[in-house]
Design a protein around this nucleic acid. Structure first.
Lengths: 251, 251
DNA sequence: CGTATGGTTGAGTCCGTTCAAACTGAGTGG
DNA sequence: CCACTCAGTTTGAACGGACTCAACCATACG
């Protein structure tokens, strides 16, 4: 339940490579897709590429929001905590996703890697300054934020009104849809089935459930033939229609 | 639980007054606050002021998003439904709040008045076109969306991880903070205490609880001396510190 | 091997729900 | 003025889905 001991980015020298935007495989998924080559060069000057291992804290809620990030590989989770350690994960971020945008000068949530990950780290001040010169970039980010808000509302529906089974079914389908659109950038090797890089505790804290309920519900869905649980970190949707029905409570 | 019978804006001629932005009391709360007098005039040409009574549907999830709205008086709720009628209210909107921004051409949630309300209704196409000419307006709305996203994440924490008592305490405090900042534009007469214009069913659907649990929890908070329940639609926070503690689970 | 970590399964409990009934206050009409 | 209705709210009793506590299993790693 509690965040336990995790490494922090600032605890040790981050691996910062001189940035190579040229071969960026996920540019089409980010705001970089709307930038001209010249603009890419200018952006490149404001960022560092950082490699971090799994379970590394990128920043904590309340910290000064000095940096913004683009996930280029791996998975990141963002979450909020209650004083007694209860945790709500508000999102999982995949390659192409942008994080750190706070409405004031401090982060409003914490961020931690789920897997080993690579991120483009921007200076917040510099990037915000560039917004004025590159309004199309700001527009892209603004559109992204609107998307996230819509997703957040969908998640509120899930958290407030869905049963455990509906939550798990919805979660699997959302992951699957995302994988279909974005391609599987999570793992280099095209693994069969759906990648579930996060553990049961993370899934529980994302869906408002306990680990035990998550586990039991997976088992139940497996026994009912809707899904298969492959070896660690992978699942397969067997009966998608049934899962869709389960996710909305119409069964 | 189900939406039941509600009037629809399109069912009857909406009351559309020729718009008077001049005396607008809540301009400072909206994106109009960043506009020049000339720009206000241009905006005014694209909008209609509509008066609607309580429990009127403004639009439904899935409808083409033809209009955007600014609430100028009254209270509006936005919500999502599951096929079987379960409802999650994702927000209550007060004077100054903007609604209808969808990430594509259709609304992603439904909107309905809680009280009688007045709204500025914009043509979506015209307003979006104006964004290009008035980037500071778009910037203001973009900042608002970021705020809403942060609020949505806070609400996810509430829905996923808080107990009934923590939910109600948080809800009352959020309402109180909002009233403190924005002033009481909900009722003309300065009523003593905190306005609770929405009924128990709405509160329940906002907090992921049933009416009965909402009622019981209010009673419990009242008996414990943290709040007072005044006549219909009004409450008073007696022991704010205790309520703050209850809201975060640290008691 | 032994140990650690993450996942699964079981048994009992509890918080919030469900079902049901009573209460309240505003509005209506005899 | 009172009887009646009706919607919203409160209260009570019983139930149940998810939680808690606990044991067990599987895989990885020293």
């Amino acid at each position: 339940m509690t965040a336990a001991q995790t490494k922090s980015v600032s605890d040790r020298p981050s691996v910062c490579k001189p940035t190579a935007c040229d071969g960026c495989e996920i540019r089409s998924l980010t705001f970089c897709s709307v930038l001209s080559p010249d603009e890419i060069d200018r952006i490149r000057a404001t960022l560092k590429t950082v490699d971090v291992e799994a379970n590394t804290t990128l920043f904590r809620e309340g910290d000064p929001a000095d940096h913004l990030f683009n996930v280029t590989s791996g998975v990141v989770k963002i979450y909020k905590l209650l004083p007694d350690g209860r945790r709500q994960i508000t999102g999982f971020l995949f390659p192409g996703d942008f994080l750190g945008l706070a409405y004031d000068t401090n982060y409003v949530y914490s961020a931690e890697t789920v897997t080993a990950a690579t991120l483009c780290r921007f200076s917040r001040a510099k990037l915000l300054a560039l917004f004025d010169e590159m309004p199309h970039m700001e527009k892209h980010i603004s559109a992204t934020t609107s998307h996230e808000l819509a997703a957040a509302q969908e998640q509120m529906l899930l958290l407030g009104r869905k049963t455990a089974q509906e939550k798990i079914a919805s979660f699997l389908l959302t992951l699957a849809r995302r994988a279909a659109i974005h391609g599987d950038h999570v793992h280099e090797s095209a693994h069969p089935g759906l990648a579930l890089p996060m553990n049961r505790a993370d899934i529980g804290d994302y869906l408002g459930l306990t680990i035990e309920t998550v586990s039991r519900t997976f088992t139940h869905l497996r026994k009912s033939g809707a899904i298969k649980l492959l070896d660690s970190g992978h699942a397969e949707i067997v009966d998608r229609d049934r899962l869709e029905a389960l996710a909305e409570g119409s069964y």
